[in-house]
Amino acid sequence: MALSREQVAKRVAQELQDGYYVNLGIGIPTLVANYVSDDIEVMLQSENGLLGMGQFPTEDKVDADMINAGKETVTASIGAAIFNSAESFAMIRGGHVDLTVLGAFEVDQNGSIASWMIPKKLIKGMGGAMDLVAGAQNIIVTMTHANKHGESKLLESCTLPLTGVNCVKKIVTDLAVLEVKGGAFYLLERAPGVPVDEIIEKTAGKLIIEGEIPEMTL
């Protein structure tokens, strides 16, 4: 069965390693923070100028001057630092952030990503996404494998305006975990109970399947 949003987040959380600085985008990526293993220490970066994002505040601790990039009220964790936007993006563009997790409309087999604009429909802006995909050491995309019309979001070539080129390394969808390399999607894992045939059917780009594909452990 296809994974829920929470299950996708749980699977992505397994990619976090001890000592990582991580930027989590809005939506499913934000949920990843709830599933970080107690055995590791990670530092969450919020691009509005906070390294070491903590939990939401209790009601009595809500502070208008303390928000994350999603404009939600947050707290700072122990060891956190606060800085200006240029400093924040120096971290991001200078390659100091180990991992970025973000959502997307489309990813193609060369690792290009479209996530910020649907011409004539959705014009909100790219925020920090273009900086993040150009600067992070490693990028994981979370999204549903197909859109609500059943059309694949893993394409030979993106059709929507791009956020970045040749940058996505890994994709975690509601159906599968895939690696992007050498101009193809490599199927690594499938969601529990999801047959390989369904993933083949819903992947429009070049898909490579080597040997037996294990189910994800959640």
Binding site: Q55, P57, T58, D60, V62, D65, I67, G70, E72, T73
Partner: peptide, 12 residues
């Protein structure tokens, strides 16, 4: 006024 766009809290 310091309006907050999204007040998010956890239970105390």
């Amino acid at each position: 006024e310091k309006r907050i766009e999204r007040v998010t809290t956890r239970p105390s």
